[in-house]
Design a protein around this nucleic acid. Sequence first.
DNA 1: CGTCATCTTGAGGAGTGTCAATAACTGTGG
DNA 2: CCACAGTTATTGACACTCCTCAAGATGACG
Lengths: 266, 266
Amino acid sequence: MPRNAAFKPNLAEPEFVRGLHFFAGLTAEEKDALLKDGQVRSYRRRQVIFRQGDPLANFYLIYSGTVQLFRETPDGREVTLDILTAGDVACITEIFELSGVYAANAVAVKEAVVMALPKRWLLETAQKNGVFALGLLSAISSQSRAVEVDAEHQATMSAPQLVACFLQHLCAAHDFNPLGFDLPVSKSLIASRLGMEIETLSRALPALRKFGITVKGKQVMFQDFPGIEEHVCGHCSVMETCRARQAVRRKGEEAACQSRESFRLV
Amino acid sequence: MPRNAAFKPNLAEPEFVRGLHFFAGLTAEEKDALLKDGQVRSYRRRQVIFRQGDPLANFYLIYSGTVQLFRETPDGREVTLDILTAGDVACITEIFELSGVYAANAVAVKEAVVMALPKRWLLETAQKNGVFALGLLSAISSQSRAVEVDAEHQATMSAPQLVACFLQHLCAAHDFNPLGFDLPVSKSLIASRLGMEIETLSRALPALRKFGITVKGKQVMFQDFPGIEEHVCGHCSVMETCRARQAVRRKGEEAACQSRESFRLV
DNA sequence: CGTCATCTTGAGGAGTGTCAATAACTGTGG
DNA sequence: CCACAGTTATTGACACTCCTCAAGATGACG
């Protein structure tokens, strides 16, 4: 019995997956036809999902768990590009780049379940289906801008500012309770994501008091969370993201994967 | 008589523009129909082409000259995102993001001639024409990866390494003579593009000797330019870009705008 | 209760940014 | 052609942030 079998039934009626923005522009039949081709795979903590440079065959929907995307630089350092959670899509960019290989490593940080879908389907559907193509273009463009803004942050903000900005985004994106929530990943991973050393992150945390943020262990508390306009990082005000998420917060509860202004992909 | 009239005739038979990779997948008639809608505009040194936050109506083909794309951060700093030259395309990403505003400022660094084309055409054509959409997806994806690699560089390389990497790319991209060429833009602009102060750039230049690069004033000389495999920055080896450009160099002469592995856009 | 991983805290140093003074270059008008 | 002003680049001194190395502290889990 294949180790993935246990998960298959959950996806036989995958409202979760069907509801993803990623599939905007597809009919229910098209979605089901695709999902039949999907391979559900589960990964343990630390297990490699794919490796930078490996031949690229699939793209991935994250079904549950947490996945770290990172690259190794020639001098042996590790740069975390992104931390993916349920509803995120990975490897879209690589496929359209036509490089034929994965541009990064992906490993499960927490036990993860993903669905692997063939790249051919993506290329063909993008060419055939104009609405789907526009959705992709929008998503890739937004993601590209996010990376750009991120780089801008790294270049212009101090470590405490970067951390504060990260925590505010984290809270908004996952719709956590601003008055108290737990970090969903290790501090090491956060530090890596922010391009700093753990020691620097550690020293930055006490300095967050002056932004009204208290961190004790894994617990984060915002003294005051009046709205995203008051974001530490004025840069982010240019981003559609913030406004969209704010709107979502007002609307109230939705599935996590639906609370995105667009689907995320990497 | 409008000040742009002088340029119109040059574009009546614009082999240059028609040959851009950007138009892959379009018939000659489609191209001509589009180009008729295009407004040719010329800008003097320092003149603003569009401003961050302005309502977004057009995308732009750079016909000649040099254009700086930059953003102003809330604390008043200026971050140069890119330096565009003939054949480059600007504002594609903004259009698909559907943000409705320009995400950056564009000013002419050297006298520039650009063609402004309506964003509606882009959205409609991307939806209608699958081949064109794939080209766009590929270009945006590549550009997104380039930004990502750039950020990785900033995070992991020293100022001299960044400068060396930049000069090598510059030489390859413009097909300059490695044994001696002049910087096409000011050092201030280069420093800004590399996210460093001009003093840091100035101090980095003498340190380039150990990479076999000599810079005197505006003149750059590579002692030894054995091929892009020997690139200062091993990071870049993962990029299709380098390999593609190397192939182009071997093939010999081509129009500058054709020597791209894909069209560039921002 | 020990083991391992994760995190905190300290001391020291490398690399850049900042400020300021000077030098080189560019273009303009006499 | 030269003199001038304005821009652009170089160089020095200093401060600051963050990285590095090292030693403990805390927490998770068998």
